[in-house]
Amino acid sequence: MEIKTRTSPSLLLIAIIIIGCVYMKFWYSQSTVENLFFILKPINQLVQLAIGSSSIRMADGSYYYSEIDVLIDKSCSGFNFLIICWGSLSSLFYRSHKSIKVNILSLFKALGLAYLLTIFTNTSRVIISIHLLRFSEMATWLASSWFHEALGSFIYLTSLLLTYLFLLKKPYETHAQLT
């Protein structure tokens, strides 16, 4: 049995992905709501369309829905999901038999797809959370922070799993042999 070894271009690409994820996480920790405008604005616009309510843009760049007392701010941006999604897609798009240039271009392809998935997934998360808040008088735990975080985690993991399965060419033949 032959053992595959990683080549220098492979290690370089893996290093770029890891350094990119660490840098994005550091940037996010230092960012303001205004820095996340490129994510928050499209999410806010889609939420407005979905729930039929308008928001007010606050001085810090967050969006406030006074009718339902909901604030979309930095913690609602989904940037951590963007980081995880980009890292996952980058490693999924990596092909050891392709040139380094093709693999570097795939990093940008992964970033574009990760951005679109972040907007879609996070908008879905916000809309579901808003709709569930309507039932919080009957079930107070629906408005709790732990439930909000658990729901977000479930939605993000589901999105990553479905994206992975969708992008596989032969998911059952390659990764899960059925008997």
Rank of each mutant, 00 (worst) to 15 (best):
S54A: 14
S145F: 01
T7Q: 11
S159Y: 04
S31M: 10
E137G: 12
F135D: 11
C21W: 01
G152K: 06
S129R: 03
L71M: 08
I127H: 09
S99R: 04
A15N: 06
R57H: 07
L89E: 02
D73L: 05
W146T: 12
L89V: 08
S66R: 11
I84G: 04
S55D: 13
K4Q: 05
S77F: 05
Y28T: 01
V22H: 06
C21E: 03
I51V: 15
C76M: 13
P9F: 04
Y94P: 01
P171F: 05
F38G: 02
P9R: 04
L162K: 01
T121D: 13
L46S: 15
S62K: 07
R134C: 09
D69F: 13
I18P: 05
L117V: 13
G61V: 14
I72E: 03
T174D: 14
E173T: 04
V70P: 00
A176V: 06
I119D: 06
K98L: 12
I3L: 12
I16E: 00
T163E: 08
I130M: 09
L167K: 11
S145Q: 05
M1L: 03
K74P: 04
F37C: 08
Y64I: 10
L161S: 02
R125V: 11
E34C: 06
A176I: 05
V33S: 15
A139G: 01
L178W: 12
L161F: 05
A50T: 14
A114Y: 04
L133D: 03
G87H: 02
V33G: 07
K98R: 13
A15D: 00
T158S: 12
F93W: 02
K170N: 15
F37R: 15
W146C: 03
T123A: 15
Y172D: 04
L11D: 09
L161V: 07
L133K: 09
S10L: 01
Q48D: 13
P9M: 08
Y164T: 08
N122D: 12
S77P: 15
W27V: 15
I14T: 08
A150P: 03
L40K: 05
K74E: 11
I56Q: 08
A176N: 04
T118P: 08
I127R: 10
K169D: 14
I56T: 07
F26C: 00
A110Y: 00
E34M: 14
S77R: 06
L132M: 11
L36W: 06
K74L: 14
L157M: 09
S99E: 08
G87R: 08
T123W: 10
F120G: 12
I127G: 03
S136G: 10
L111Y: 00
P42A: 09
E173R: 09
K170H: 14
T5F: 04
Y156S: 11
K169L: 10
G87I: 05
F154E: 01
G61T: 12
T140A: 14
Y63Q: 08
I100N: 06
I16T: 03
S54K: 15
F38Q: 12
V33N: 07
S66I: 14
L105C: 00
L13D: 00
S106V: 00
F93E: 01
Y156V: 10
Y156R: 02
